[in-house]
Each structure stands twice: as structure tokens, then as C-alpha cells.
Computed example of a mutant assay.
Amino acid sequence: MRSVPGSPLDRLLTASLIVAPVLYLVADSLYAVSGWDDPTAAVFHILGTTFYTVVLLRVLTWTDGALAVALLIVGVLGVAGNVGYGFNTIHVSLGDTDLVDASGVAVLIKPLGLFFPLTLLLIAVALRGARAAWIVALVAVAALVWPVAHIANVGWLAVLVNVALVAAFGALAVTGAPVGRRAAVPVEATPAA
């Protein structure tokens, strides 16, 4: 997948690199202050995760081959799981059953949720060699620490993970298309014979 540099689509994809991590930083900051069952935090959580879908698309415009296929599949599953956790928080805040503690088909939320940090790790792999090493390292470390912070409900660590992602993805937004990757070129219409 490629986007035409400077097009509205390209600008939206790039803006997501700032919007998604900032929304998620707000979510985890609210969780850290108000608790992991805060419905307002859950709304920012769901919106942030939804915008991470667009981040996924941005990175896919810079990636191809088997890595792009893996990133797309893992990313879609990760977003589904992470959005599921956001809606679970809303349900818990309303006094409903916490899916994390439920059995049967509710256990689906657990493995799907782990696909989100795996998505971040694959994004780091996709950026390797085409971006500054510190950006790649920051995304990779955030991906590895993400499940520790969120499974153990360590608010300050979740906030720190998201600060790292704001810095890394913000740097990606500012620097433009990766070094060594070709940008899409619009296809010109062939004159009729």
C-alpha cells in the first residue's frame, strides 16, 4: 500500500502518528489517576486504539512483503483486542461482568489483547534500518513493557510507555517517509490513441 505524498490521505495517515499515542496517553493517565474501571478513560482508550488502526495503515505504506502481511493481520487482531478491553472497562464501570475474570468465550479478550503490543513490536521491526535507531528502540521497548504495565495495572508505567510512544511516533510524523523507501508516485493517465 502506498500513499501519494502531500495528499489528504497521506496527511491523515501522518497525523495519526500524533493523535493515536496522545489519545492513549490521556486514557492511561486517567486510568492511573481514577482507576482501571474509569469510563472516561475507556472512551479515550477506545478512540486512541481506533486511531492506532490508522497508524498501522501509515506504517503499512512504508512496508511490503511478508512483514506487511504479518503486520496487517497481527495489527487488526491487536486493535480488535484492545478496543475490546476498552469496552470491557465501560461494562465494568456500569457494574457488569469483567470479561477478564469470566470464563468460556469471554477468554477471547486475553489473547486478542496481546496482539496489540505484538503489533507495536512488528512496527519497530518494520521501521528498522529506515529510521533512527532511537525511534525503533523506543517503540520496541514500549511494546515489550506494554503488557507488563497493562496486565499488572501499573498506572505510572502505562503512562511512561505512552510518553515513549508519543515521542517515537511524533518523531516519525515530523521526519516524513522513511529513508531508503520509495514514495508513491501518482500514475499519469495514458493518452487515448
Rank of each mutant, 00 (worst) to 15 (best):
M1A: 13
S3M: 05
G6D: 01
S7D: 09
P8W: 04
R11S: 09
R11A: 12
R11K: 14
T14Q: 02
T14G: 00
S16C: 06
S16F: 04
A20N: 03
V22W: 02
V22I: 14
L23V: 14
L25W: 09
V26E: 08
D28R: 11
L30W: 09
L30V: 12
A32P: 04
A32W: 03
V33H: 06
D38E: 09
A42P: 02
A42M: 07
V43A: 07
F44N: 02
F44S: 02
I46W: 06
F51L: 09
F51M: 11
V54W: 09
L56F: 04
R58G: 06
V59L: 09
L60G: 02
T63G: 04
T63R: 00
A68R: 08
A68I: 07
V69M: 05
V69N: 08
I73P: 08
I73Y: 09
G75W: 05
V76A: 12
A80S: 13
G81T: 11
T89C: 03
T89K: 03
S93Q: 05
D96H: 11
D96A: 14
T97F: 05
D98L: 06
L99T: 10
V105A: 15
A106K: 07
L108N: 04
L112P: 06
G113W: 05
L114T: 13
L114V: 13
L114I: 13
L114R: 05
L118P: 00
L118Q: 03
L118V: 14
T119N: 04
L122W: 07
A126W: 00
R128N: 12
A132P: 02
I135Q: 05
V136D: 00
A137W: 07
L138H: 03
A143C: 09
L144I: 15
W146Y: 15
A149S: 12
I151P: 00
A152W: 11
A152M: 13
W156E: 13
V159R: 01
L160P: 05
A164D: 01
L165T: 12
V166W: 01
A167V: 15
F169S: 00
G170I: 12
G170V: 13
L172S: 07
V174T: 13
G176S: 10
R181Q: 11
R181T: 15
V185C: 01
A189I: 14
A192P: 00
